[in-house]
């Protein structure tokens, strides 16, 4: 028994070490740092309790970032999932050039986000960028997509959806392919309409996949900020500052480790709550075979 325990520990040790070193230890260290001031040259960090959190409460940029991130999440999550499902259904049927279409849908996922952002920078260029050129013949004027407070965040959302939808499509497609064909045959014999079949059979069977995709989409709504760095750097006037970008800015542009740690703790709590909501509440209502 003792030997087996030892053996078990030895087996999980490599994974445990990596997890502790790169996940748990940084998380704990961040929590500790969030109770201290930022060390500066000759001034060592000082314990301030919850002061960093109360400061955050009155920080307008923090609330702006939370607000932006909420909009970003509420828009990207449903749009990318619905789009992914639609694309998966489209390429699951026998259409001409199916392989090509599948590849086209999946291409954005394979490109690095930095490259994607640079391509979209051109799309969004005012006057002679792709969108303005397309809109010009229809009487569309000049759009300063990224330079206008009103359109900058929607532009970021569009890029994120474009990037994500193809990836999620892959999961839906795999789930659709795994679905036994006899269900479809039975439904046909019963004279069920295509819409009815989709609503009563396909969709419920896709629910485990949907939950998985949803979890990923939620994480990405807080994680995917690379294009903000390349395209707007949070501007104009914080219109595209998302929570993670604000953490980056606090940590690596202002070197304010106290603010960055405090923000990180808030983000961790937020993600924890969302995970609990998803698995605890939604997970129970999903039928796994």
């Amino acid at each position: 028994m003792r030997k087996e325990t030892l053996q078990a520990w030895a087996l999980i040790l490599p994974a445990l070490l990596l997890l502790v070193a790169f996940t748990h230890w940084p998380a704990v260290a961040t929590l500790v740092d969030s109770f201290y001031t930022t060390p500066k040259g000759s001034r060592p960090p000082r314990f301030v309790g919850l002061e960093n959190f109360t400061d955050l409460w009155t920080d307008p940029v923090f609330w702006r970032a939370m607000h932006n991130n909420a909009i970003y999440a509420i828009a990207t999550i449903p749009i990318s999932i619905v789009l992914a499902l639609a694309m998966a259904l489209a390429v699951n049927t026998a259409i001409p050039g199916r392989a090509l279409v599948r590849m086209a849908y999946f291409t954005p996922t394979m490109l690095p986000m930095i490259a994607v952002a640079n391509i979209w920078l051109f799309f969004f260029t005012p006057d002679y960028g792709l969108f303005d050129q397309i809109l010009a013949p229809f009487g569309g004027g000049r759009h300063n997509w990224l330079g206008d407070t009103a359109t900058a965040l929607p532009a970021m959302i569009a890029v994120a959806v474009w990037k994500e939808a193809g990836f999620f499509m892959l999961f839906f497609l795999a789930a659709l392919q795994a679905m036994p064909p006899d269900l479809k045959e039975a439904a046909n014999l019963e004279g069920s309409s295509r819409w009815n079949f989709f609503r009563r059979v396909t969709l419920p069977l896709l629910m485990p996949t949907t939950l998985f995709v949803l979890v990923n989409a939620v994480i990405n709504a807080f994680r995917l900020v690379d294009h903000v760095v390349v395209m707007t750097r949070g501007g104009p006037d914080n219109a595209t500052t998302l929570l993670l970008y604000y953490i980056y800015e606090a940590g690596f542009r202002f070197w304010d480790t106290a603010l960055a740690s405090t923000l990180t703790v808030v983000l961790l709590i937020l993600l924890g709550l969302l995970a609990w909501l998803q698995f605890g509440v939604l997970g129970k209502r999903i039928h796994y075979r």
């Binding site: 206008d148 407070t149 501007g235 104009p236 006037d237 800015e249 542009r253 202002f254 304010d256």
Partner: peptide
């Protein structure tokens, strides 16, 4: 001092002003 922070404060306000907010 805290150059980047002062830059950020100034930049945000300039952008707000140029966007007429």
């Amino acid at each position: 001092f805290e150059n980047q922070r002062v830059y950020a404060a100034l930049t945000n306000n300039i952008q707000a002003s140029l966007n007429l907010t």
